[in-house]
Design a protein around this nucleic acid. Structure first.
Lengths: 343, 343
DNA sequence: TATTTTTGCTTAAACGTTTAAGCAAATATA
DNA sequence: TATATTTGCTTAAACGTTTAAGCAAAAATA
C-alpha cells in the first residue's frame, strides 16, 4: 500500500538529477536532452508518478478547472450542454466543476463564491430565472477570469454569450401555426426580464402583427414555465370568452402541464387546440400526443461555450473583441401541431 | 480593478503582525487574543480577502473537494442524489466535482483519473452498466481516500454502500401484480452481473415461485434497459406463443419503450397487460397511462452517501466498520397496473 | 585559436498557506 | 519571592510544483 505519493523529487533522486530537470523533462522542455526525457518518463511510470495538481496550480496560478453553473442538471438541454463542454475542455487538460442553482438567485451566488474560492480559471454559466441583480457576475469579471454565458444570460454584462435566435424561433413557430390554419394564437412566455424570453415574446408579437392576427393582451401571459404554472396559465386561457385555437409555450415543461390539463378537459390536441413547446426535451416525443418543439442545438452550444473559454485564456488581455454567437434553432414538428383539417 | 489578490501577508502588513498570526486568527486558534482576531477579521473584510484554496489544500493535504461519478446527470434519480450530496457536504465546507460516465467503462476510468489528479478528498460513485473490471476502483482505495458507492455498486470491493432493497422491491412488485389478478408475469431485467439487477431478478423469481406462478425461461429476459431495448424486449415477449399478462421492467426508460410499443400495437395497458417500471422518473407520472414504479428515495441516498463520506474522513484509519445501508423502497401505484376487472 | 552560441543541466526562489517549535511577557502557583 | 504555566505572538520550514537566473561544457562561428 503505497500511501506516500511519489513526487518529482523521488524521480530526481533515482536519476541523480535535479527536481527542476524532472519537471522540465515532463513538460518536454527544449533544453532537456532526449535521453534524460526518456529516462524521466520511464522512472515516472515505474514509480506510478501522478503530478500534484494543487502544487502546479498554486505555482503557475492556473487551476485548470472551469466552473459550470446551470439552473439544474436534470434537464436534458443542460446536461447535454455540460457533456459537450466537458468533452472539449478535457482535451485541453481542463476539468469542470458543475454546480446547480436550482433557479435560486441565492444558491447561484453561493455557487459563484464556491467556484471563485476553488480558484477556477473561468466560469461558464446559464443564469437562474430569478437572477436580476448581476453584481456577483461583475465579481467574476473583476477577478479577471473569463466568464462565458449561454442560453439564459444575454444581457448588458458585456461578456461572451452563446445562444439561439429566440426571436426568429418564435417567429417560425407562429408561422408554422398559421400554416396549420390557426387563427387565434396565444403565447405563454417566460419572464420578460430575462432577455431570451423577452425575445421570444417579441418574435411572437411581431409575427402576429405581420400576419394580422388578433394580438389581444389576454392571449399573451408571463409564466415561471414550470409544469404547474403551465397548467395554471392554460386554465386561464381556456377561461377566456374567446379562447385560442393554438398555444405556443416558451418551455417544454410548462407545455407538458398545459397538455395534461387539456387532456383532462377532453380538449383535443391538435384539432381543438394546437400546442407548441420550446426546448425539445426528450419527453416531448414520449407523451401523447407528441409535442412539437424547438431544438436548441445543445451540443453546439456546449462546444462553442468551451471553445470561447479556450480562446479567452489563450488571448492576451487586450483587444478583446466580444463573442456573441447566435445559432439558428430548429422546429421539430410533432403531433401536437399536426392538425388534420386545414381551413 | 483589484487584480492582485490580497493574501494573509497583506493583512499581516497592515496590522504589523506575522502571517502566521493572521492564519491562526482566521481559524480561531485559541492562542490568539480576541482583540487580534477581531482586527484581523476586520482588515480581511476591508481588503476583500479570499483564502487561496490551492495553497491551503497543498499545505494541509486536504483539497476539500469530493468527486462524484454518475452514469448520467440527466436522470432524475442521479440529479436528485447529487443535489442532496451537495447540500450535506457544502455545510461542512466541501465542494463537489461532478463527472458523468455515460455508462461507458472507459469514460469512468478517465473520470477516476481526473478526480484523483484533482486531489479530491474522496469519491462517491455509482457505476456504469458496463463496468465489470474494478481495478480503477481499487486504485482509489489504494490511494487511501474514502470511496462510497451508491445504487449501482454493491459488490465485493469492500467499501461503503448505500442502496435500496432491490430484492424486496421486486418481491413487492410481483405481489402487487398478483393482487391485481395477473397470472403470467414477465420480467425485463438488467444485466445479471450488476448486483442490483441480479437482486431484482432473484426477488422476481422467488416471488413467482412462492405464489406458484409460471416461471418459464421465456418470461425472464435481460436488457440494457434503454428505451430502445425496452421496446425490443417487449416485442420479443409479445411474440411468445403464450404472452404474459403483466410485465415488470427493471428501469423506467425501458418501461417507457415497452409502453410505446404496446400502444402502437393497440394493446391496452393495464387491462390487457399490466406494466410496472422502476425508479420513479418524473415522466412515469406524465405519460398515458401513468406508469406504476418504485421510488428509490434518492434524497436519503444522497444524504447518507455524503454523511458516510464525512464519517470516513473524520475517522481514524483503524476500526473501519463497513457501512452497508439498504433502504426500503416504495411502490407508487399508477394507472399502468390499475386493472379494472379482477379475476 | 579565440570567441560566441547552444545545450543541458543546477540553484534557488516563489506560489499562499499551515504548523511545529520557540520565546518573551504575563499570569498563576508554590 | 522563586518557579511553573499560560498567553500571544514570531520564526521558519514545509506542501510539490514551476521558472528565472546562472553556469559549465559542448558545439558553432569567426
Amino acid at each position: 500500500m503505497n500511501k506516500k505519493k511519489t513526487t518529482i523529487k523521488d524521480i530526481a533522486n533515482v536519476l541523480n538529477i535535479s527536481a527542476a530537470a524532472v519537471s522540465k523533462a515532463l513538460h518536454d522542455d527544449s533544453r532537456i536532452s532526449a535521453k534524460t526525457k526518456a529516462a524521466v518518463k520511464r522512472v515516472a511510470k515505474e514509480l506510478n508518478y501522478q503530478p500534484n495538481h494543487l502544487a502546479s496550480a498554486l505555482r503557475s496560478g492556473k487551476s485548470k478547472l472551469v466552473g459550470v453553473i446551470v439552473p439544474r442538471t436534470s434537464s436534458n438541454f443542460f446536461s447535454s450542454v455540460i457533456q459537450n463542454i466537458e468533452e472539449v475542455l478535457n482535451k485541453e487538460g481542463y476539468n469542470i466543476i458543475i454546480t446547480q442553482s436550482n433557479e435560486s438567485f441565492k444558491k447561484e451566488c453561493n455557487n459563484i463564491d464556491t467556484l471563485l474560492f476553488t480558484q477556477v480559471d473561468g466560469i461558464i454559466a446559464s443564469m437562474a430565472n430569478e437572477t436580476v441583480d448581476l453584481s456577483f457576475y461583475e465579481k467574476i469579471k473583476s477577478k479577471g477570469i473569463p466568464l462565458i454565458l449561454f442560453d439564459r444570460g444575454e444581457n448588458d454584462l458585456n461578456v461572451d454569450y452563446i445562444g439561439i435566435n429566440d426571436y426568429d424561433s418564435s417567429f417560425m413557430i407562429v408561422e408554422h401555426l398559421i400554416s396549420k390554419g390557426c387563427k387565434r394564437i396565444a403565447h405563454i412566455g417566460g419572464f420578460r426580464h430575462t432577455r431570451i424570453f423577452n425575445n421570444r415574446i417579441r418574435g411572437y408579437v411581431d409575427a402576429i402583427r405581420k400576419y394580422d392576427l388578433p394580438h389581444e393582451d389576454d392571449l399573451l401571459v408571463e409564466s415561471s414555465l414550470t409544469l404547474e404554472d403551465g397548467r395554471l396559465k392554460m386554465q386561464e386561457l381556456l377561461a377566456l370568452d374567446n379562447p385560442p385555437d393554438a398555444v405556443y409555450i416558451a418551455g417544454d415543461y410548462a407545455a407538458l402541464g398545459a397538455l395534461q390539463l387539456l387532456k383532462e378537459k377532453n380538449i383535443n390536441v391538435p384539432n381543438d387546440i394546437c400546442l407548441i413547446g420550446f426546448g425539445n426535451e426528450p419527453f416531448t416525443s414520449l407523451v401523447t400526443p407528441t409535442i412539437t418543439s424547438i431544438h436548441q442545438h445543445s451540443e453546439q452550444i456546449g462546444q462553442l461555450a468551451a471553445q470561447t473559454f479556450l480562446e479567452r485564456v489563450k488571448m492576451d488581455d487586450l483587444k478583446q473583441t466580444l463573442n456573441k454567437i447566435i445559432l439558428d434553432a430548429e422546429l421539430i414538428e410533432r403531433d401536437s401541431s399536426k392538425k388534420s383539417k386545414r381551413y
